[in-house]
Nucleic acid binder design. Structure first.
Lengths: 216, 216, 216, 216
DNA sequence: TATGAATGAGACTTCATTCAT
DNA sequence: GATGAATGAAGTCTCATTCAT
């Protein structure tokens, strides 16, 4: 049952020429879109190739099979997410008011949802194959770890075990909410963003404001 | 891309004999489990028939095709959900302290997730085909409407438009959180339940306690 | 490198109805012919199905994949060969003049070549996949063992080790000759049969006539 | 199914430069090995090019297609064989004792089998495509003609028609035996060589010793 | 001339669905 | 009504071959 090595290299061939790189880029983009909108199984390799303006053969020159393509989409999305969050979690982030940071995080998450098809693809194709769940799990766990770290500074009094649960709840709450949000149309999505921020603020306030009594 | 008529009735034949009714019941149960655990495409009609102890032919006597079977599972789950919530939203529910009701709702939702394979099937196969999303959407919207109704009583001062968003956020927050929770193992799931309740309480408290200043 | 269990059952489904049995029969026949005439790779599953008057789906109902179909052809041919030789190697075969038996063997072999497409398929597709070589190897080794056994009775003076080589040479000589023969057209094939018999006779005579001085 | 013109020249371009000639040489060698070990279909053009240290494009500069490459391998092998046999069938070969010559021939044949991958490639890929069979047929027929010529001198009394059959039997017997032999492991192969020689000797002795009564 | 990325026809295989028994 | 064998459309993937660089 053990999942095989993590070190499956996702790319069969690494493109060196400019044109190839662009082609690969397009394939990944189109694939992410397809996986996100139609689901893994419903997305057809031929259609992805066509949509990307290439031949099916070219797709398979980069990716050994459909799952490898999905994996590449997933990894690339995680890379992107990681970078996005790293930018917001610089050492001096702690000095900013926590409410501001929460808002920032929600907006960042929201941007991922809106702008990164790969993210939606990952979120939406979890239960299909164990293998893919790993990538997703890993991503959200990573977010949870980062959040946990912040909490450990903001609310040092909070018990370690509970802090972990709180971090999980915050991250997954936001993620789940956004999944729902994107399905609800742009208008309500925007309205929801503010409420999500408010919900997280109110949820965390009692513990995070314990030191310095800030208003909700 | 156009989805055909909406008004498909899911059942080809309504069973009259006792044995038939039991057979139909089993098929739906097995199918729900299969769709939930393996996803729509990975679930095979033959396997479902076999698992249900019938022949593939008999399944097709009840359901015109795989999608109809899924739709039946979805509808049946919604029926169940509706009943479950109706039990908790009796006219005198309003008289109970809202915190209690929130807890109750979360627990009810959780029970659906844990106990009703159809619910998980619905939640997990949304983006696959537009058609199925409807069923899901409808379900959550129904929950949201019910919540909205409650809010209109609990917090009459809240603006109608905002109330709608709040209801959506509450319902989808819980739903999303539970989706994540089931993936996280039984132990954390239990721990999360309490935090989810707490989060909703804190989120709603400022508005719902406006009338009668209750402590959080 | 170890070849997996021998016990792969070749048939996915064992036909019970008469019509199915006939269908399976036809598929095997057509497949044997195709493998023999065109080689394993060049033989196309679709073509086999069409030639057998069925659909590709029906072929796959019996055989999990192309190799399984080949294996079935091989096993069936070996069965046939075994039976054919068993009929000639009854206990009282020993009492017959050895020359007569040699002739009989050659004719039997020849009949296999002419009449059993599976035999030709087996002989002609050896180096393609190790897996298939096993079946072929086994068949010829079986013949060699039987021949070895006869030699042990006819020429008890012959050293065991040499006897083994002689048996191998006789069996493979005949087999190889017949392979060549079928390629040479019917007319020469017939003419060759007599010479093959003569060659084997002359080869074995010195040792087998040692006891009772029979003329060549 | 009809095979196109016979008169295809196998080489697209005749290399003039030294480096090209060496490249062509390597390609043919590698291809022979691949065809012999893996079979025609299993041998991949890309792999052959890579193994030969060139690009796939360069291979296609010499050979119009895969079959042309095979044909080239075949022809080159025949060239080699012809030369090898020509060396042994010099005018004064007749003066040597025929047994010696038979032994020599078997050894030469064996050397081809062991040392010349092209020979094995030819032998092992016969039934795949009619086209290739020709090359093989031609080769063995050439051997048979040479043998026939020798017989006409050694056994002038033998009827022409029978002589032809005898030559065919000798040549194909040796060839078939060697095919089998290489599959049987080095050790038995060595042991078989002696028996093959003995078999041919005994087969031919009665006719060839008719003039000068030599003992078998 | 050499390279190797791009192409796409074509092969295998699956599985939803039908229909004769 | 029940069964499950038969069907074939459709999808994934390979690899010979071409051609721009």
């Amino acid at each position: 049952m053990a999942r095989s090595l993590r070190a499956k290299k996702p790319l069969r061939r690494v493109p060196t020429q400019e044109r190839s790189r662009r082609r690969l880029e397009t394939i990944l983009q189109v694939a992410a879109e397809a996986f996100a909108n139609q689901g893994f199984d419903a997305a057809k390799m031929e259609a992805i190739a066509a949509e990307a303006g290439t031949s099916i053969g070219s797709v398979y020159q980069f990716f050994a099979n459909k799952r490898a393509l999905f994996r590449a989409v997933a990894e690339r999305c995680m890379e992107h997410s990681r970078k996005l969050f790293a930018e917001r979690l610089t050492p001096d982030a702690i000095t900013r008011p926590w409410r501001e940071l929460v808002d920032d995080m929600v907006d960042t998450f929201a941007k991922l949802h809106t702008g990164d098809a790969g993210f939606r693809a990952l979120i939406g194709n979890i239960q299909l194959y164990e293998e893919f769940a790993d990538a997703d799990q890993e991503l959200l766990e990573e977010f949870a770890r980062a959040t946990n770290h912040l909490l450990s500074i903001w609310a040092p009094a909070m018990e370690a075990q509970r802090r972990e649960v709180v971090a999980t709840v915050v991250v997954n709450g936001i993620a789940g909410l956004l999944v729902a949000g994107t399905r609800l149309g742009e208008k309500t999505f925007e309205a929801m963003l503010d409420e999500i921020k408010l919900m997280i603020r109110r949820y965390l306030a009692p513990e995070l404001d314990a030191l310095d009594a800030a208003p909700s």
